[in-house]
């Protein structure tokens, strides 16, 4: 592993060296997440919940509820609004805003590429 002074780098599993600005991570094919559901991903030790809305949007947020640590990927999704399964705190997964509860959740930039793969932008994900 090497580095350029003042310019942090990441190493992808394939071994290619990229600067952080360019860093992206392919999570899974879009089809791996059923419409209206979410799944958890292990992104280098950090757990991230990724949701696929029924209208085709894909969003990534922190995996646990800030209230009592409920598994957000097990929540009910309607549009981009998510209900935590434990005590029904509500969030908007597109913005991280809290709709019911005391505080919002962290979001991560994500998109679906041309080959229908869900791609996470690593900006700010890995410390």
């Amino acid at each position: 592993m090497g580095g350029t002074r003042g310019k942090p780098i990441l190493i992808t599993p394939a071994g290619a060296v990229m600067t952080r600005n360019m860093a992206e991570l392919t999570l899974c094919p879009l089809s791996a997440i059923p419409p209206g559901e979410g799944r958890n991903f292990d992104v280098r030790g950090e757990k991230i919940a990724v949701f696929r809305t029924r209208s085709g949007g894909v969003f990534a947020v922190q995996a646990t509820c800030p209230h009592r640590g409920g598994p957000l990927s097990d929540g009910l999704l309607g549009g981009t609004r998510l209900i935590c399964p434990l005590h029904a705190w509500k969030f908007d997964v597109s913005t991280g805003d809290v709709l019911f509860g005391d505080c919002g959740i962290r979001t991560y930039p994500v998109h679906v590429d041309d080959s229908a793969q869900i791609v996470l932008h690593l900006d700010g994900v890995v410390r």
């Binding site: 992808t12 599993p13 999570l27 958890n40 991903f41 292990d42």
Partner: peptide, 14 residues
């Protein structure tokens, strides 16, 4: 069986 229905954590592809 539905793929990954019961997976609490998925590995990333790449």
């Amino acid at each position: 069986p539905v793929a990954n229905r019961y997976s609490s954590l998925l590995p990333v592809l790449s």
